[in-house]
């Protein structure tokens, strides 16, 4: 088995903060490794180590077989980097940015220009080629960042939260690009705060928390632990709660929990068809519900399921509806924030 990325026992401290407390990561050549974790978990630090931007205090990493410290220069010939920090020059146009990178990679003037035009075309930026990058929309900017990381035809690509802050349409576009790259044989390391993104794209996920990898596996394996989706029902009348709980237990095979939000019952389910079944059963029982939803477990819930504790600080989720305040139920702390991504109802 060949690994494009292999990190062992990475430790990195900044002053008194330990950003990485012994991280092992491995990505098979030609696969997508997802690194999932909340803000401040150490994802970006791990990427910076693997991209030779910082040196780990302990441990070592090999990229394409080269040591990131001893052979940093060789690693740099293999990698492409897209992230909140590896940025393009906002004052230059899209075309100028890509030509500059091509020239730095020692393409001839003509080849650099051609490569830039090809990439702009591929990312749908041809019309914006002559405009300064500062005038680009968020989605365009992200595509230009991606294009910039591809000028050198990297075989290993780091994408640090490539879709954070993008609307669903722009997100889907970025996902398509990433899939295309992997089809070309590129190995991708992708960090994300979104479970569905990791689920959609990655072959393997490392869940990282407080600078440690707390869980490892394929998306299917992790979901088996965390529950693929959650069925949530809020009956209009509190007196219906026991009946709804019974019904949900029959559907899901496990008893629902009420969590921090009183009146809302939730249970992990693996088959999306339970939604229709639930509607039918509720109708038969003449129970009126105020809320009925099938949603992905939030990162927070995955963390709870995988680690037994909550992700903290809670990452800037998709569109949090704000905390649903209420008296804390025994199993969860009072500050639960429910994310609504993937809500179907």
């Amino acid at each position: 088995m060949s690994y494009a990325i292999q990190a062992e026992g990475l430790v990195k401290r900044f002053g008194s903060t330990t950003a990485l407390a012994g991280v092992d990561l491995a990505a098979r050549t030609g696969s997508i490794l997802g690194v999932l974790g909340p803000n401040g978990a150490g994802k970006t630090t791990a990427v910076r180590v693997l991209a030779t931007l910082i040196k780990p205090d302990e441990g070592r990493a090999r990229v394409g077989g080269f040591d990131t410290i001893r052979d940093a220069h060789k690693v740099r010939e293999l990698i492409g980097l897209t992230g909140q920090y590896a940025s393009v020059d906002e004052e230059l146009t899209g075309l100028e940015n890509l030509i500059l990178l091509g020239r730095l990679l020692e393409l001839s003037r003509k080849d650099a220009r051609q490569r830039a035009r090809d990439l702009l075309e591929r990312f749908g930026l041809t019309d914006a080629a002559g405009r300064p990058a500062s005038t680009y929309s968020g989605g365009m900017r992200r595509r230009l960042d991606l294009a910039a990381s591809l000028v050198g035809r990297p075989t290993v690509l780091y994408l640090d939260e490539p879709t954070t802050g993008l609307d669903p349409h722009a997100r889907a576009e970025v996902w398509d690009v990433i899939r295309g790259l992997v089809a070309d044989g590129v190995t991708v390391l992708l960090t994300t705060q979104y479970l569905d993104e990791a689920d959609q794209l990655t072959n393997e996920i490392a869940v990282i928390d407080h600078g440690r990898v707390v869980a490892n596996g394929t998306p299917a394996q992790l979901k088996a632990k965390a529950g693929a989706q959650r069925l949530e029902i809020r009956p209009a009348l509190a007196s219906d709660l026991p009946a709804v709980a019974r019904l949900m237990t029959e559907l899901a095979g496990v008893a629902p929990t009420e969590g921090a939000d009183p009146g809302l019952l939730g249970v992990p389910v693996h088959d999306p068809a339970v939604m229709t079944a639930a509607v039918r059963r509720l109708e038969d029982a003449r129970i009126v519900v105020r809320e009925l939803a099938l949603r992905l477990p939030s990162l927070d819930e995955v963390f709870l399921a995988l680690t037994g504790h909550r992700a903290e600080p809670i990452g800037a989720g998709n569109e949090p509806t704000g905390p649903r305040n209420g008296p804390a139920g025994p199993p969860s702390p009072a500050d639960e924030t429910a994310a609504t991504e993937g809500r179907l109802a």
Binding site: A51, T52, I79, L81, Y85, D89, L101, L104, G152
Partner: peptide, 20 residues
Amino acid sequence: TDIDKGVFDRFRSLPIARSG
């Protein structure tokens, strides 16, 4: 400004001379 905005990190991830 280059360092602050991350432009430098892009350059530094390239196989170019550190002094560039």
